[in-house]
Design a protein around this nucleic acid. Structure first.
Ligand SMILES: [Zn+2]
Ligand SMILES: [Zn+2]
Ligand SMILES: [Zn+2]
Ligand SMILES: [Zn+2]
Lengths: 147, 147
DNA sequence: TTTGAGATTGATACTCAATATCAAATATAT
DNA sequence: ATATATTTGATATTGAGTATCAATCTCAAA
């Protein structure tokens, strides 16, 4: 069993929860993909692997995975929640193209430091933060100009 | 008619829309308050002033006001959308206490500059951005420690 | 190995926020 | 007045997520 799975098992044990077949199956799947996903689309995927799995179970497991810290919720400007692994990839934020929907990830330590400073200045015990930038990506901008 | 109202009227004219009694009434109300609100709570308020107003009209008008740039959408970590005036107050971001729900507004020009730089570096034509910091406020943290 | 308390499941119904539909009412231009 | 376009409110519908609950599973203790 790899480290990430162990981490989830520990989380489960610490909370008197069990590692069930469904939970393991979902964990395996999200570890195998490494991009943004939402609970409904994860349900459809899991359903195709095991038609007996229920929607509620998938939604519940996504919550558990978020509580465990293995995934984090992102919004991407939509009404539903998206999620991404917090492990296997550095912490980053997102640029969202309002024209084509493309998501560009970026890492900016200056930005992260500023956020920590702001929290400190306000005596705020920071837990998480969300930074999202919306606009028009380079490709979309170019193709608009060409018209 | 004040400047802000004129701005909304221009927006309406430019889009072949009319300034109706309902729209004016809603505009007046949000100009008179200067804090975060959501569409449903605005509807309840407007209903109390004019019981004949419909929910759909309020939700539609909130959208119009957002398109016009007079208000902007913020999330505050909830599933519903909140809004706030973009005029009469400097652009700011939010700290959200996950314990008591308190919202702390802050202005940080360094943060704003970084965001603009990041967009530029990615050749991204920035339109808007969202920065929200979640955690525990000073008061909540103190009262936790005292236990 | 049984037993039983507690955890988990999937089906279903439900909530909540927001949107779509549409006929009636308003406004505007001629 | 008449034709055209916009807006309205009631209602139904969607979309995302949660609550309920009887049936099932797990596992430690007897
Ligand atoms: Zn694009
Ligand atoms: Zn990402
Ligand atoms: Zn607090
Ligand atoms: Zn604010």
């Amino acid at each position: 069993m790899n480290d990430i799975k162990k981490q989830f098992c520990n989380f489960l044990k610490n909370n008197n929860l069990l590692l069930t077949a469904q939970r393991e199956c979902i964990l395996n799947y999200i570890l195998s993909t490494s991009y943004h996903f939402d609970a409904e689309q994860l349900y459809v995927q899991m359903k195709s692997e095991d038609p007996s799995i229920g929607r509620a179970t998938v939604f519940r497991t996504v919550k558990l995975l978020e509580s465990s810290g293995l995934i984090r919720k992102i919004r991407l400007g939509k009404s539903k929640s998206y999620y991404e692994l917090t492990v296997k990839k550095k912490h980053h934020e997102h640029l969202v193209c309002q024209n084509c929907g493309k998501i560009i990830e970026f890492i900016d330590s200056g930005l992260e430091e500023r956020i920590i400073k702001i929290a400190k200045k306000n005596n705020f015990k920071i837990n998480k933060h969300a930074v999202e930038i919306f606009g028009i990506c380079e490709d979309c901008f170019k193709s608009t100009k060409n018209k």
